[in-house]
Computed example of a mutant assay.
Amino acid sequence: MNPDPIADPFDLTGRRALVTGATQGIGTDIARTLAGAGCDLVLTARDREGLAALARSVRADHGVRVEVVPADLADAAETEALAASALAAFDGLDVLVNNAGISVPQRVVDVDATTWDLVLAVNLRAPALLGSRIGRAMAQAGRGSIVNVSSVAGSLALAEHFSYCASKAALIMATKVLALELGPSGVRANCVSPTVVMTEMGQRVWGEEAKAAPLVARIPLGHFARPADVSHAVLFLAADASAMVNGVDLKIDGGFSVA
């Protein structure tokens, strides 16, 4: 017998989510999108003032509960403390969105250990630790959704992005292991892999038409992604709409990776 149909498979009312990297670009859009679906939020980033301002705005716009926990995800101890604080904020979590990430462009021949370790710490170790600690609590509760924000650079090599590509490729595989081990306890793990997203940073780097044109020409849909393209995919993976989706790397790239 099939289970009863879900009244609104995108409704997150009463759910609790942690969103990392919440004060910039994609992270802010994800936070607002989840709040718009009724989700209570724990928001984290290094920018204390930015977190406080975002929390006030989200509470006013959507009427959900919002707590902030400033943290530097390059620091393993702060990451561990974040997991504990986020779980305590609303007595558990239903959704974890590992969005925070950094990129320090370097040619292969110029890579240095300090930069390599920093990028891997933020882009891979932090989501792995949060996935482990929060995933364990979700498994004990019997449900949860982990959504990792990777990149098409995790599947396709990008010049001058040695550490970034390596970290995002590893994050995709880490997601699959989370899905494999936590799935039997009712916890799903998936990731989204966008192409260039036209945040403020994306505009600064790719806003010049002459620079962007060769890359846009390789995207069958003919344009870069918007923040909403990513946040809507995250909402889908966080919600019951994707109840049978586990271990997937969802490309948000307009067909770039198949062209």
Rank of each mutant, 00 (worst) to 15 (best):
L73S: 09
R59D: 02
L93N: 05
A100C: 05
S151Q: 05
V104T: 07
V104E: 15
T79L: 06
F162H: 09
R136G: 11
L82C: 01
M138S: 09
E67M: 11
A113E: 15
P127Y: 00
A121D: 05
A121L: 06
R48N: 14
V152Q: 02
G92W: 01
L171A: 00
R136F: 13
V119W: 02
I172F: 07
L96D: 03
L87P: 06
L120M: 14
A137T: 00
S163D: 13
G142D: 06
L171I: 00
N148S: 09
A89W: 00
V149T: 11
V149D: 08
K168H: 12
S145I: 10
V66D: 10
G50S: 08
T114M: 14
L82A: 05
N99L: 01
G101M: 04
N99D: 06
S150Y: 00
L73Q: 06
L129W: 02
P105W: 07
L54Y: 09
V152P: 01
A141H: 02
A157T: 10
E49K: 13
L171P: 03
E78W: 12
D110F: 11
E160A: 14
E67D: 15
A60V: 07
V104I: 14
L93C: 02
R133C: 11
L158F: 15
R59K: 12
A86E: 03
F162A: 15
R143N: 15
V97K: 01
L118A: 14
Q106N: 10
D110N: 11
T114I: 13
A45E: 11
H161L: 15
E80A: 14
A89V: 10
G63P: 12
A141E: 00
D72W: 08
L124P: 01
G101D: 02
A170V: 03
N98R: 02
S155Y: 05
A141F: 00
D117T: 13
N148R: 10
M138P: 01
S155I: 01
A100S: 02
Q106E: 14
D72S: 11
D117M: 06
A71N: 06
F162E: 15
T115R: 14
S163H: 14
L96F: 04
T115V: 14
V122F: 04
A126W: 03
V109R: 12
G101H: 02
Y164S: 11
D72P: 14
V111M: 15
A159N: 08
G92S: 06
V119K: 07
L73T: 03
V109F: 10
V147T: 08
Y164N: 12
